[in-house]
Design a binder for these strands. Structure first.
Lengths: 148, 148
DNA sequence: GTAGGTGCAAATCGTTTGCTGATTC
DNA sequence: GAATCAGCAAACGATTTGCACCTAC
């Protein structure tokens, strides 16, 4: 495991302990999957991966673990209508996503920061800023080359 | 009905005719609701409103009409995981939204255009741009004042 | 008259919940 | 040992679909 993934995993474990959450084998496996994923795995993908190690694990456990991480603000949820949610356990704060509409791959592009724009827009309308989401949809290079 | 809403309604009717879609009373009512809404009504809200005029209308008809408009690119769909989708029939192209996380009100804020940013980000990663979505979440003035 | 639309009910899919037996601490 | 958790199945809510009847053109 890469150093930064290892460090993030230990950080998460510490935070669970702080809150008196138990470190069960299933939770540990889910945390590992999250910190080791480059992409933004969906619940189904996490479920599929964890079944390799713990075949009896249920989807409910995946959901419950993620709900716990959400409550701790240690995972970023990318919800999609009519599709599984995807999760980022490494950068649990708003950031730009580039999403392929064909293969549904999600990457973090290099992008100039939006900086104070969300705060500015919210303030101007009298809103107290909570968060924001910026998704760019396109066709990824691989899917482009596969077009006829 | 305001002039611009009237004009948009006629535009939509023309586009339906062009494609040999029939102008049924239910469809007309849904189109009216869409062009007259300042906000971004959800399917449930559209359903609720249309029932006042046509009590027998079904949710399925609302969904089917919206699916037709989506296919014609005449409505912008704002999908939310675990919530009804919302629709904008007046500005059926990507634009920034400001969303209250408490009352779920959605407004179009005055905002400097993102301009070429989505295209720039997509291009840099080799993606062909399809669309984008920029949502800012916060607490609206009314909900702030209602906080004890 | 006929292609297309409406409305109903059933099916679907992701997610959540209730509960019982098992496990971490 | 006790509080928490895992796993199962049932419940849920938004959306979609199949189909018989109906209606705009």
């Amino acid at each position: 495991m890469k150093d930064d993934a290892q460090a993030r995993l230990e950080e998460l474990i510490d935070k669970l302990r702080e809150r008196d959450h138990r470190i069960t084998p299933q939770r540990l496996a889910i945390l590992k999957i999250l910190v080791l994923s480059d992409g933004h795995p969906s619940t189904e993908q996490i479920y599929g991966q964890i079944k390799e190690e713990f075949p009896t694990t249920s989807l409910a456990t995946v959901y419950k673990t993620i709900a716990m991480l959400k409550e701790m603000n240690e995972v970023l949820e990318l919800g999609f209508a009519g599709d599984s949610n995807h999760y980022d356990g490494n950068k649990p704060y708003p950031h730009t996503h580039l999403i392929c509409v064909k293969c549904r791959d999600i990457i973090d592009p290099e992008v100039e920061d939006l900086k104070i724009l969300p705060q500015q827009v919210a303030q101007r309308a009298g809103f107290r800023l909570v968060s924001h989401r910026f998704d760019i949809y396109g066709i990824c290079p691989r899917c482009q080359s596969e077009e006829q």
